[in-house]
Design a protein around this nucleic acid. Structure first.
Lengths: 218, 218
DNA sequence: AAATTTATTTAGACAAAACGAAAAATTAAT
DNA sequence: ATTAATTTTTCGTTTTGTCTAAATAAATTT
């Protein structure tokens, strides 16, 4: 399994080709910042190897083995992210790029040991679930902050937008994983929210709230 | 800098092309388990990039920048080896293969953090010195056990032969880094040694002693 | 339903890295 | 000093992954 193949499988997974859903070559190309023609080439190759189902002009979806492989890469990526944050004190916005490389290291033992060093974490620093060794992904019982009602309370467990910009914004405003957030008021006019976090009141735009995952607290 | 280029530079370094010494294409090919013709190709490419000095039919040696690059790879390799042994409980003979992959991860910050997590170690699990960030390699003040006199005492600090076989032998006989070894007697007949280690007497062949580095104790 | 736009594939080409066979240079042997 | 043996290079080819330009299919508009 080459690095390129692994990256394609991972991207197809992220674009929803987990099972029946078809992912278009264009979508893959855009996500990977490559050309559609290159994607077509790789789609054929992966189909040849039985890792994806590919129908001309329709799109691709992962096969059973393809899904298994994709999950193992996602597992590695997310475990490495936890490692970087927990053990090496990286910040949210720095981990992705490095994990992108580390996820391709080939050693069962290595990732198993990292997993136990970290105490078998279930979620990565962005709140995304870490697939188990057997390929089981725990569901996130979480909601976007923007979908919650006024007066409700939640704990920050992840982000939807993982861009460096957004993560830096959160850092700057001292919003971190595990923080408790109470929605004090929702402005009718622009859906901006007044929230109470770390004992402090602040106002955030709906756009921000729409990218923050919280776990409902009762 | 591609993975292949990095591997060539590392190999040239290990074969002694640190400065003036010339390394033959054949030697490189043998070490890397590839063909001499491939080495010639790469030698040209590296020379083109100013990383080695290459004279046809003579051999290659590292340039100043080539040496710097090689040292940074060796540094990463050896730091990762320490990490695997110290933090993840790998054994001597398992680390090389994985470190071979990890050494190519591109992130200054990552290797710096690993370095401080480990407390800036000076030697890897095989006793080989870890080059500093600035490319300075500490000398090993160590001797082969086979070169020491009867009655002398030393601390085991490394191995010459790093083959899996040898390292497994050491494990099995409970000889580990940091153990104190006293030479009780050297047999005239076959130069085999009787040593005292961990309070226990044992006999080892000269071949074994010739692959064990110790640091003289007084 | 025909025309146009958009998406996708085909085909040919390229760069990186490697290999084998044959040529050229170097070294060793007689 | 030739010849023989060895080492090293050259050259043509392969594989992997990518690209561009052109062709084809699908989706949208009119």
């Amino acid at each position: 399994m080459t690095r390129a193949e692994e990256n394609y499988l991972k991207t197809i997974f992220h674009l929803g080709g987990s099972s029946s859903e078809l992912v278009s070559t264009n979508a893959i190309a855009e996500q990977m910042e490559t050309k559609p023609s290159s994607v077509t080439d790789m789609a054929k190759k992966l189909a040849e190897k039985g890792l994806v189902k590919y129908t001309k002009y329709q799109g691709v979806s992962l096969s059973k083995t393809g899904l298994k492989t994709a999950l193992s890469i996602v597992r590695k990526h997310r475990l490495w992210e936890v490692f970087l944050v927990e053990t090496l004190d990286f910040s949210w916005d720095e981990v992705h790029e490095v994990a992108e490389q580390l996820e391709h290291i080939k050693s069962e033992k290595l990732i198993d040991r990292i997993d136990s060093l970290l105490g078998h974490p279930k979620f990565d620093p962005h709140g995304d679930p870490i697939p188990s060794k057997e390929g089981i992904v725990s569901e996130r019982e979480q909601h976007l902050l923007s979908e919650m009602k006024s007066g409700s309370i939640g704990v920050c467990v992840g982000v939807k937008d993982t861009s460096s910009n957004f993560l830096k914004f959160l850092d700057k405003n001292k919003i971190a994983l595990g923080d408790t957030i109470e929605i004090v008021e929702i402005e009718d006019f622009d859906q901006s929210l007044t929230i109470k976090i770390n004992g402090q009141m602040m106002s955030i735009s709906n756009q921000i709230a729409n990218n923050l995952y919280v776990k409902k607290q009762e």
